[in-house]
Every structure is written in C-alpha cells, then in structure tokens.
Simulated assay, not measured.
Amino acid sequence: MQRPDIKESSLEIKNLIEEDSGIYFSHIVLQSTRFMSVLPGDEVTLDCSMAAGVRMSSYIMYWYKQDHYGEPIQLIIKENDKPTQNYEAILNTNDNRFSLKVSKVTAQDSVTYYCAAGSQAIFGEGTKLTVLERDVKEPEVEILKPSGIETRCKKTITLVCVAEKFYPDHVSITWTLGDKEIKENVATDPYATQDKTTKLFSMTSRLKVSKKEFKPKNKYRCTVNFYNGTHDISDNTDEINGIEGISLDIN
C-alpha cells in the first residue's frame, strides 16, 4: 500500500484552519494528554497514537504547534526528519505510537502541540504545554447573580460563571442542572485571558436560562475542571438556585 503524504504549502495548511476549533481534527489521531506542565529547562515527551483498527504505518506522521488560539499552525517536524536543537520525532509503528521530544524547554515552548497524519492532515485534539513561570494556583469560581431588571424585563436569564486567579490556563468549564450536563445555550470564552503582572488567568462562561425554568427546585452549577500538573481537579464549583416569580431584587 502506498503511503499518502501531506501537502505542505502555506496556503494549503492555512486552509486547514477552522474558525471554530482552530484546526480540523478527527478522533482517528489520539492525544491522550490534554494538558502538561513542566519547569524551565526540563525535557518533555508528547505522545500520540491511532484509533483501534487504524495503523500508523499507513500514514506519514507530523507534529505541528499553534502559539495561540486562532493563529495559524506551524509544522515542526515529521517522521524520519533529523532532530533539531529542540525537537526530535520518534516513530514506533509496532506500538502504533508517534512521539515528540522537546528539550530544554523555555517559555516560548508554552504552546499547543498537534499530532497529524496523512495527506488530509488528520489532526489529534492537541496537547497544551505550559512551561511554568509561577506557582500553580487553583481557580476561584463564582456565578454572578442576574439583575432584577433582567428578570423583570426579559424572557431569559443569563447566568455568568467567572473563573479567575488561576495558573496555568489548563481549565474547562461545564454547566449542570442537577446531575445532568447542560450543553445548549452555553457560551464559553474560547481561551483564558492573562494578567501580565500577576501571570494569573481568568475565564467566563454564560448560560441562558428560560425565566419559567429559573425556579427554586432547579439548581444550576458551574464546574471549572483544572489540571494542576499531576491530575484533574473538579471541585472548583459554584451553584445557584432559581427563584420563583417574575422579579428578582438584588440589593
């Protein structure tokens, strides 16, 4: 079987960028680690594999990086390339695994790395690497109460969840009603913003709720899942119950 190759012109690579997710990706290429944190000067290895029944030997494999959300991706290295000063590609077709070794990391290596396969540039979902510049800090989470004007004059209520003062920006935000996750009418910032002085991040998520559903029996919870460098922490939460009636007085 002839192995397909990727088209590497800047125009063709640019056409792979999507406004929604930043790039086109598929569940064929698997990157099990979503976040990684390391100290300056460390060496780190990122791995990717293929979905069950898909052989890596059928593709030429690549590693890309994206400095910030929405920016173009950049080709770093492909299989069988000679190692550079910072990067080394390691292919193990027997184990269906392709790795990227990054040596002597600096703050400039704090980017998202994407593993990709084949002529159609099938991407994994990416691994965000942060070279730590300060101590890790968990997020503070608060749901802002809707204003009385909003509950009196509008048919829907917007709940705003604010996660702030965290580092690094290895977070995801989910809304739940009782034990059920809410996926509709949710708008979450595509990326966290950083205070240049403290290096701490903040991020918000908004949930629109029908006024008739905003009742005392319904408890809305915002959960900020945070990766602290060794494991995920999901107890950073705040919650709010609905209030009966068409008005809500906030003093």
Rank of each mutant, 00 (worst) to 15 (best):
M1Q: 09
Q2Y: 15
P4D: 04
D5W: 14
E8Y: 15
E8F: 15
L11W: 06
E12S: 00
I13V: 11
K14T: 00
E18I: 06
D20V: 15
S21E: 05
F25R: 13
V29G: 03
L30P: 04
T33S: 08
T33Y: 12
L39R: 02
G41M: 04
E43G: 13
T45Y: 02
S49V: 10
V54F: 10
R55N: 02
S57H: 00
S58V: 07
Y59R: 08
I60P: 14
W63H: 09
W63L: 01
D67M: 06
I76W: 14
P83K: 04
T84K: 05
T93E: 04
D95T: 02
R97H: 10
K101L: 02
V102I: 14
V105M: 00
T106V: 03
D109V: 00
D109G: 02
S110L: 02
S110Y: 14
V111R: 10
A116C: 05
S119R: 14
Q120H: 05
A121P: 14
I122D: 09
F123D: 05
F123K: 13
E125D: 01
G126L: 01
T130G: 08
V131T: 02
V136F: 07
V136K: 06
P139N: 01
E142T: 09
E142H: 08
I143V: 01
P146A: 03
P146K: 12
I149S: 05
E150L: 01
C153R: 12
K154E: 10
T158H: 07
L159Y: 13
L159S: 13
L159T: 10
D169C: 00
V171W: 10
S172L: 07
I173V: 07
L177N: 11
L177C: 09
G178A: 03
K180G: 10
E181P: 05
E181T: 06
I182C: 11
K183D: 09
E184Q: 09
N185H: 11
A187I: 15
T188P: 02
A192Y: 14
D195R: 08
T197F: 04
K199I: 13
S202W: 15
T204A: 12
R206C: 05
K208C: 00
K208G: 10
S210F: 12
E213Q: 13
F214L: 06
R221W: 04
V224S: 01
I233E: 15
I233A: 13
D235H: 03
E239H: 08
E239M: 07
N241T: 00
G245M: 07
S247I: 10
L248D: 01
